[in-house]
Design a protein around this nucleic acid. Structure first.
Length: 528
DNA sequence: TCTCACACCTC
DNA sequence: CGAGGTGTGAG
């Protein structure tokens, strides 16, 4: 399909050492074979964010899921994502400290249903939950640290519990989402949340997924079972499987694995194959919201982050009390940690880069609200101190509430971001209305993605060859234009409203911003 | 749709 | 060994 899943090339990013210097980054890329041909990107961002490149690990695996229509289970207790979100970051200044964090924004404003072996829109999306940010447990850390090994966000958990006290990312079932990675410079001169905060946002279109409470497409179930080590028990070679199933089930009845059943129902090849993704739009992605388009350049940093289409009236962030990131233990994310062994999968894929944009933004990212209390502080403080407490000596990831944004704002050229409400629990306004967007399948052209998110891609005509291994980042200068998948986006530049961090107790890791999200406003108007 | 106890597995 | 990540299938 569009993605070219077929050809993935890249195998994984090497864990190997990456170089820290930006220049080297390129080399690395090559070594990975990633380079995208086209990634011209360009990018630049301010404050030194310009040479940063991010490569999605296991991109081929992500692509396989994406081709079917990725689904991520969300539970009350929190469920990890699979494939895990791991990236290789290059181009960071070895000595500069950065905070890496993720957020997951709505992919559109629709609610989906899975019927007849395919996903289709059933209605309007529910109001987004308070946006939360997952700060990598190693944050803040030097560029050398981040570049040394893969950066894993595997511990991030998704929940459907709107009142989740653990700091997990809250999502709505049957809604489409797009994970995003944000790299925020944490220098002393670059206070988190300050106007000068330099950051860049990277979006990998192939990581888009629909949140579900139970798998809808059996093909996804199978992919999860085949690739997730924790689901090994469900793999089965025939015998095995039946045997096992028999056991599991009450044994009285002969059992046929569910999957088997389903499969039969849906022969491969058929319906699933391609369509699942409708979510993503047409096969070609054309239309898909997540495509890498790039049009970027919006220039405003905000855009980047805010990729979200939502507009926040004022960016404040707050931590929500009570959320401390309790559960997280530090771990693996750190260097040295292990990743799943099973990566075996598809060997090589070619790495291609999608586009990346860099958006450097001077403004604080909408998404990244300054940690409360930090307001004037250097970002470093942010992580170190309260925000990332080390528990037991280990640092844990923290969740912050982010602005809620939607990736696509499709129509709207502009976006804005919302302002966080005071407390996490503050009621969030339902999104008012979204601009109509076409989505997936529908209208390719119409859709625009928000800058950040979608921005993307540099010119890459086809991704065929290169898929996006590299993320699209939004940056002011990024490249523009083209979309890999044929999508277009144009992020409108937006102003960044001032940031007003709300102070909050250091302990909390989770920040929620309540934002109201609103749709983007055309152009700059936004809030500021 | 969603939740839960469960067996099975990784770590 | 124990903690905890998986999908299952009944409810």
């Amino acid at each position: 399909m569009a993605n070219g899943g077929d050809q993935f090339g890249l195998s994984e990013p090497p864990n190997s050492d990456c170089m820290d210097s930006p220049k080297e980054a390129k080399e690395e890329k090559q070594s990975y074979a990633l380079d995208s041909p086209a990634s011209p990107q360009t990018i630049f961002s301010q404050q030194g964010m310009e040479g940063i490149k991010v490569f999605l690990h296991d991109r081929d695996l992500w692509t396989r899921f994406d081709e079917v229509g990725t689904e991520m289970i969300i539970t009350k207790a929190g469920r990890r994502m699979f494939p895990g979100y791991k990236v290789k970051v290059v181009g960071l200044n070895p000595k500069t400290k950065y905070i890496l964090l993720m957020d997951i924004v709505p992919g559109d404003d629709h609610r989906y249903k899975f019927a007849d072996n395919k996903w289709s829109v059933t209605g309007k999306a529910e109001p987004a939950m308070p946006g939360r940010l997952y700060v990598h447990p190693d944050s803040p850390a030097t560029g050398a640290h981040w570049s040394r090994q893969l950066v894993s966000f595997q511990k991030l958990k998704l929940t459907n519990n709107h009142l989740d006290p653990f700091g997990h990312i809250i999502l709505n079932s049957m809604h489409k989402y797009q994970p995003r990675l944000h790299i925020v410079k944490a220098d002393e001169n670059n206070g988190f949340g300050s106007k000068n905060t330099a950051f860049c946002t990277h979006v990998f279109p192939e990581t888009t997924f629909i949140a579900v409470t139970s798998y809808q497409n059996h093909k996804i179930t199978q992919l999860k079972i085949e690739n997730n080590p924790f689901a090994k028990g469900f793999r089965g070679s025939d015998d095995n499987e039946l045997h096992r199933m028999a056991k599991l089930q009450s044994k009285d009845f002969p059992v046929v694995p569910r999957s088997a059943v389903r499969q039969s129902a849906c022969p491969a090849g058929s319906p699933f194959s391609g369509d699942g993704r409708l979510v993503r739009g047409s096969p070609d992605c054309a239309g898909s919201p997540f495509s890498c388009d790039n049009s970027l350049n919006s220039g405003s940093p905000q855009e980047l982050l805010s990729a979200a289409p939502y507009i926040l009236p004022r960016p404040h962030l707050q931590l929500s009390p009570g959320y401390r990131c309790p559960e997280r233990k530090a771990e693996s994310c750190s260097p040295g940690n292990r990743h799943h062994p099973y990566k075996k999968l598809f060997p090589a894929s070619s790495p291609s880069e999608c586009d990346s944009y860099y958006h450097p933004s001077a403004y604080p990212p909408p998404l990244l609200p300054p940690p409360p209390g930090l307001s004037g502080n250097p970002s470093l403080a942010f992580a170190d101190s309260a925000y990332s407490p080390d528990v037991g000596g280990q640092r844990q990831a923290c969740m912050f509430a982010g602005a809620e944004t939607r990736l696509e704002e499709l129509d709207g050229p502009s976006w804005s971001y919302s302002c966080p409400l005071p407390s996490a629990m503050t009621p969030v306004d339902p999104y008012p209305s979204y601009p109509p967007h076409p989505h997936y399948s529908s209208s390719p052209q119409g859709s625009r993605v928000s800058a950040v998110a979608h921005q993307s891609s540099p010119p890459q005509p086809d991704h065929t060859t290169h898929d996006s291994y590299q993320s699209q980042s939004a940056g002011p200068t990024s490249q523009s234009s083209q979309s890999m998948r044929g999508r277009q986006l144009s992020p409108p530049p937006r102003e960044y409203p001032r940031y007003t961090p709300n102070p909050s107790p250091p302990l909390y890791h989770t920040l929620e911003t309540n934002t109201h999200v609103r749709c983007a406003v055309p152009e700059w108007s936004a809030t500021s």
